[in-house]
Design a binder for these strands. Structure first.
Length: 153
DNA sequence: GCCAACGTTGGC
DNA sequence: GCCAACGTTGGC
């Protein structure tokens, strides 16, 4: 079992949107960064626990928890010319981009703000606290995951 | 394969 | 909206 943090812009898709989906499940499409893609393709496994993080908004931080319910498969939006995630250079027979399905587990009673995360002395490895890390999908070490989860509950 | 130019991300 | 830090692209 591994632990992850996925960023999302709440204006586009928030933790509440996830909670309101049928079966509270949604495919996490639109990842267009190779490093993040490699995580999705190779390392994100069924049952992995995922922090949902709101970025590019007024209150940035960890807002909830989800679980991987389907492992990496082809992200269909790369072939859709009407999608903002359309990638005309992705070969049909060898798709570049993959996605996973996440199921809502929990929305925390309050957000854990980025500045609080940065202030936690035992949180040093997660990409969020490292300068210049812009990955929208990042691994979280078990000890840091547990520490963050404790802070959220 | 280098690297400048450009585009994107994301906190503030 | 600014801008620093990255990632990607494409000419050479």
């Amino acid at each position: 079992m591994q632990y992850w943090l996925f960023k999302t812009e709440p204006d586009a898709f928030s933790i509440d949107d996830l909670a309101n989906m049928p079966k509270q499940t949604e495919h996490w499409d639109g990842i267009r960064n190779y490093q993040a893609r490699n995580f999705l393709r190779d390392e994100v496994k069924l049952g992995d626990q995922v922090f949902i993080y709101h970025s590019s908004c007024k209150d940035v931080g960890i807002v909830g928890l989800a679980e991987v319910v389907k492992e990496g498969y082809v992200d269909h939006t790369q072939f859709d010319p009407d999608s903002k995630y359309y990638d005309p250079k992705s070969p049909q027979d060898k798709p570049r981009w993959v996605m996973v399905d996440l199921q809502f587990k929990q929305k925390f009673s309050q957000i854990l703000p980025l500045k609080d995360i940065k202030a936690m002395p035992d949180i040093t490895e997660i990409g969020l606290v490292k300068k210049g890390h812009r990955l929208s999908i990042m691994p979280v070490q078990q000890n840091e995951f547990e520490s963050l989860l404790r802070k959220c509950q």
